[in-house]
Design a protein around this nucleic acid. Structure first.
Ligand SMILES: [Zn+2]
Ligand SMILES: [Zn+2]
Lengths: 387, 387
DNA sequence: CAACAAGTCG
DNA sequence: CGACTTGTTG
């Protein structure tokens, strides 16, 4: 981790990732199997990093439910029930990395950025990158579509997350400047809304969940409006109030995505879509450049040695499918001497995050056990290093 | 004035430049002569934009003396007297533009940036530009030299000011991010020091004067240490804690200078030196570029049509002397129709600032009367526009 | 939108 | 330190 002058909250130490008791529990285990069991079923405090209930279910800890973030707003009594439902969705803890795998689910959940064909570009969508480029504060419309809508209430959660796995666990939050109460973006804005990087001005029932002061991931949840007969399309407008390039503790030029999840009253996930996002001053220019670059990379143009490596977001869900990598399912034996305990500690911390991230992506899949095993190995080394 | 999203305090409306009563006094006058008199001698509240007591004297209004900025610090009783002296120097009001004319005075006041010959450049000085380039937070040493030192106490005041005349009246202050109490630059820093863009960590007796919340210009004053026999050289270390490129209300890439004044107990100016400053991430690169550019401009290379105009700082006090412009002392008759009241208002506001600035530079000189006349004309037009 | 300014990364 | 990124200006 570089120590740049502004980078004072850039990465969370492991001690922030877990409450203290849990950490001790985790690290006092010796065998990897015990750790596996712990992770799957018996983590103290009922907080679970990875669930054991199939591919599409989150388990939330009711005890860390955040009352502050769920202030009463002015509501129709008509909608009280749905809002009550929304309240029951607790904030996601920062350390839980959300899957960014696409999942259409039982209702054929679809999310699409409304294309923009005007000459002036407050925002642009690139299909090949699955990415929207927009200016800060500019509103952009998104359509949500689903089929076979059930009688019960459904919710849509919008969560920004860093695309790169090594910082996906860090909550996306606003920079100091734009979070300032005097900033023009914050006039008349509720205090718990202020800290959110993305807003949904079109939906007055939107709940702004989470509190970054408590190291919680920030997200928006709103109830899907009761469907008119035959209508299955809901349009909402979103707005980023920080740039991708905002300084720490802002996004700091890191690739960012928005994860849209369709959820039921219990937070069970019924669909997931993912959208890469860049908030910048020149959306058109930057889109063109990224597309050109992506094309170049596709055309097998060998990456020039000197060029600085761009932090590439995951290739997303476009036509371009990831080639199944043959080596992704193999074990590799490491035999090496490495100098410097501090280096080792850093490396192991990184490795641990990597496996947490991969686990998030491979829940319920055959490789999950192998990943857990590797995670345990890493944690064992960490434990030995700390003695 | 452009309306960029961050630019929420970029330029002060005229109403901020004067207390309300003074404004009304000013604008209710009709003849230009009366306004002249007002400015010279009888401004209500004893606040004077331009003094009438010769070239080198400031007149401060005791009534706006700021108690907050003069908190007691932990001091030797030895130095109590000198600190008392420093306290008697009231903060300069924001609207008063400081002269940036060099004046060696009766003590041959000299200020020099200690040259840096190391391979690594935390700061670099360009003689031809009379400008230091440095990184934020880096300390750079400055030598103060004077001859024939008197028995009484002397003080040095350090005031940052924008170099361009059209924003020289705006106080130089810190951006929101770096002024935040959690910013690494502010740990253990006294609250009234925090808002200052330039600090003097080497001198514990330095008083941080002024409060930008009250629209006062910020400066540092410290007593010149009692001279050792035969020694006439004092070295102090300074540090900028914002970059030249910091966003509003910071310096916003504007050219900035530091004005060093040698003052007696009553604030009478006994010497003045001026130093252009640029706080950036690549001091060496930027110095080289600016020097190249300056040389090019000197070589008569006609400015290329397409190139964006760079906001040039005044040529400073180097060998390169300003050619006396023949037209500087003539009147010009304007006869034109201009469209748009708002445009006119903007233009007149700008013209007014221009004349205030010029007056600051030409106090006591023959052209002063003509400048006052023009100022009055502009203010008359402004008054008519506001009816 | 092109040219530039200025921070960042390797 | 060079190459690159990304905000700003006209
Ligand atoms: Zn921001
Ligand atoms: Zn700053």
């Amino acid at each position: 981790m570089s120590q740049r002058s502004h980078d004072f909250t850039a990465s969370l130490p492991l001690s922030d990732l877990f409450p203290e008791e849990i950490q001790q529990e985790l690290f006092s285990q010796v065998g990897s199997q015990e750790i596996n069991d712990l992770l799957v079923g018996e983590m103290p405090g009922n907080l679970m990093m990875v669930d054991g209930y199939g591919n599409e279910i989150y388990n939330h800890n009711e005890l860390i439910h955040d009352e502050n973030s769920l202030k009463t707003e002015d509501l129709d009594s008509k909608n009280d029930f749905m809002v009550q439902m929304a309240r029951q969705l607790p904030p996601l803890p920062t350390n839980e990395v959300l899957s960014n795998e696409e999942y259409v689910g039982p209702h054929d959940f679809e999310v699409s950025v409304v294309p923009n064909h005007k000459s002036k570009y407050p925002w642009v969508y690139s299909g090949i990158l699955n990415k929207v480029f927009m200016k800060m504060n500019q509103q952009f419309p998104v359509d949500f579509k689903l089929k076979n809508r059930p009688d019960r209430s459904l919710f849509i959660r919008i969560t920004p997350q860093y695309s790169a796995h090594h910082n996906a666990n860090e909550a996306v939050c606003r920079c100091i400047q734009h979070n300032h109460h005097n900033d023009p973006t914050n006039i008349g804005i509720d205090d718990n809304v202020k800290q959110h990087v993305i807003r949904c001005p079109s939906n007055k029932q939107a709940q702004y969940v989470g509190d970054s002061n408590q190291n919680q991931r920030l997200s928006i949840v709103f109830p899907l409006s009761t469907p008119q007969v035959g209508i299955e399309n809901v349009r909402e407008t979103f707005q980023f109030v920080c740039k991708s390039s905002c300084p720490a503790p802002g996004m700091q030029r890191r690739a960012t995505e928005v994860i849209f999840t369709l959820e039921d009253e219990l937070g069970r996930i019924l669909g997931r879509k993912c959208l890469q996002v860049r908030v910048c001053s020149c959306p058109k220019r930057d889109k063109d450049k990224e597309e050109t670059e992506a094309q170049k990379a596709n055309n097998g143009t060998a990456p020039r040695g000197k060029k600085r490596k761009v932090e590439h977001p995951p290739p997303a869900s476009s036509a371009k499918v990831l080639m199944p990598q043959p080596d992704a399912s193999r074990f590799f034996q490491l035999n090496m001497q490495l100098f410097g305990k501090n280096c080792l500690v850093d490396i192991m911390n990184f490795a641990e995050k990597t496996y947490y991230y991969e686990l998030g992506l491979h829940r319920g899949m055959p490789e999950e056990a192998a990943l857990r095993d590797s995670l345990a190995k890493v944690q064992e080394v960490k434990k030995q290093l700390s003695q």
